[in-house]
Design a protein around this nucleic acid. Structure first.
Lengths: 199, 199, 199, 199
DNA sequence: CATGAATGAGCGTTCATTCAT
DNA sequence: CATGAATGAACGCTCATTCAT
């Protein structure tokens, strides 16, 4: 895709690190973290396994690096949200921004979605889960009835999982995103404004 | 744990097959399918790896056997639902029954939820996914606007994932179940009765 | 072949031992001794592995039993030949009788032919080889030139191997046998009557 | 054996691949292909099993590599022979050259001779057999009487097997080779010039 | 006459990782 | 910036064999 230019085998300047990340993410998402071996990654890049170790200390290190950007983005979102008044508007804006982050890191979310068992055993996984919980806390009101809390979780989680499950449904991806956001927003609105007391 | 008593070699009655299934499900759910080795399972049972192979032909075979009951239950649900009129009542009953199935196979659902990458590469996984899609088809109306379809998917999926995510939230499990069912039902109701025409 | 009669699943009287031998010989010859497992034999007979151990002490024991008849036949041939005068007529008769023995134990010869490495490590194999050498000694004259000794070995060995290699050549099996015997005889005749002195 | 000296970890230059081949051929020929484990090979080389896998993709791959040289030699022989007139002289030259190939790959021929059951199930084995048949076709006349065809096969096969069987006979190896070639040639001559019509 | 249940040893193979060059 | 060569640990699986019933 990128290197279609010039010589039959381009010199490939200092971009190897990024190429590793790219291929690794593809394979981790496609076949799972454990089932993807460094040999596969190296082969697809036409370098040796040892080359990977020049750029990353361990296999887990490769995975961690993939999360860096996303983690920063979400941290910023959390930071911003924490400073806002906990109004409905804020919550809606959180969902909107979260949807954007999601769209910008689709493969990574797919990876998380499909490798939760792995994530649970990795530092990065635990870190990420904590951030999701922080986000959830910004959406829900801990004193609200359980059903409202479920609504908030459901909103967040549906956005998360929706893109992949909806792949089997016909329709334009952009439309799907909108529909997911719409339903999520609706759930949060309902949770925020519900006047009735619990069950 | 259990057989710490007397004789150097316990009699070990004819329950080994079930004990294997039990331990396997625990470990598969806890640590993931790939990361659980047959050695671990055998060690926890205090038998040799070879003993596992007396009862199951392959590792995958153990997994498959775990799905048998659940698969039958869901097939019955699908069969039943297919014969009902596609009313709102029917849909609500589907959710209720699905919730029951879920409660009766909690560890298995947790396993699925957390090992999707693995499931995708296994026959049983594909089979199960197909059944989920059948269920979704019984809830949604293919001509309805996208947002309504999202509501149905979201209902199903939230029930699915909810039990595990909500473990970190305080509250009685039975209450949580009810809350999940309530929100799911609400989503399906909304999808069923929505008068407005999509986008 | 034999038990085509009556009930869908015959009671199978005391012939199990023979059935084991029959199936074992088939598989040993077809797939090799090492690559044939007792499980395969048992499965093909629709009994359990343990049943085999009721009839034979070890896997090697099954193999040994297969050689019993043939061994006796060849021992008789050797004994008979040892008492004859070492004339050309005797030698020709040896070949003829050997050809008969061969025809009556075709699968076994095929097994030997194709599993020599295995035979060399088994008692029975060594025993059999010794007998072959005895036979060779009855055909050749140790003081004759090397070429004559080669002729005798070649005669014996060609009969041995011929049946299997010639399977790929068109023609009636009985004719092939005759042709093999003819060539073998011719070689022995030449070895016996050669007037020239070796090298 | 060699590196018993000084340094705790010998340098082990770039000859490992060949050392593997050498040891493997020894063991395959001595104990049979199936009964030779990679552990044995590795131990004899004082490396780990995994080291073998750096140099060869599978166990079968090691075997295949052993055949490469011989296969090329025989292909050249076949190619050369196919271009010659099918005279007696040509046939004699084929045997002579085949004898040379045989002498240069003695262990390999022994391996084949003693592991035919294994060879039959391996790609390389089938390939090799096809080549032998090609050679046989270059020696025999398909319209000649069966006995003449047997003579040709017997010639080829005796050379093949002779070296190993004759190990138990006293005499100089070089002399044996000559005697084998002499008898083989004689058989082919007889097949080529036989005036009588078959049966 | 046979089975059900299990074992211990071993197999071929793969993996993440290391390190001298 | 990377490779060639290797390791140690583990994996899923199969085997011949045993023994109480």
């Amino acid at each position: 895709m990128s290197s279609s230019a010039g010589a039959p085998r381009a010199p490939r300047r200092g971009n190897t690190r990024q190429r590793i990340q790219d291929v690794a993410l593809d394979l981790f998402a496609e076949r799972g973290y454990e089932k993807t071996s460094l040999r596969e990654i190296a082969e697809q890049l036409e370098v040796t396994k040892a080359a990977l170790y020049y750029h990353f200390k361990t296999k887990e290190d490769i995975l961690d690096s993939l999360f860096e950007d996303l983690t920063r983005t979400i941290d910023e979102l959390i930071e911003w949200a924490a400073e806002q008044p906990r109004t409905l508007d804020t919550k809606q804006e959180i969902l909107r921004r979260y949807g954007d982050a999601l769209a910008g890191a689709e493969r990574l979310f797919r990876f998380m979605q499909e490798n939760q068992a792995t994530m649970r055993e990795l530092r990065t996984g635990e870190d990420f889960k904590a951030r999701m919980m922080r986000l959830l806390d910004l959406l829900r009101d801990p004193d609200a009835p359980l059903a409202d809390q479920v609504r908030c979780f459901s909103a967040l989680f549906s956005m998360h999982a929706g893109m992949f499950v909806l792949k089997d449904v016909e329709g334009d991806p952009e439309e799907k995103r909108k529909a997911l956001l719409e339903v999520a927003t609706e759930l949060v609105v309902r949770a925020h404004t519900a006047p009735e007391t619990g069950k």
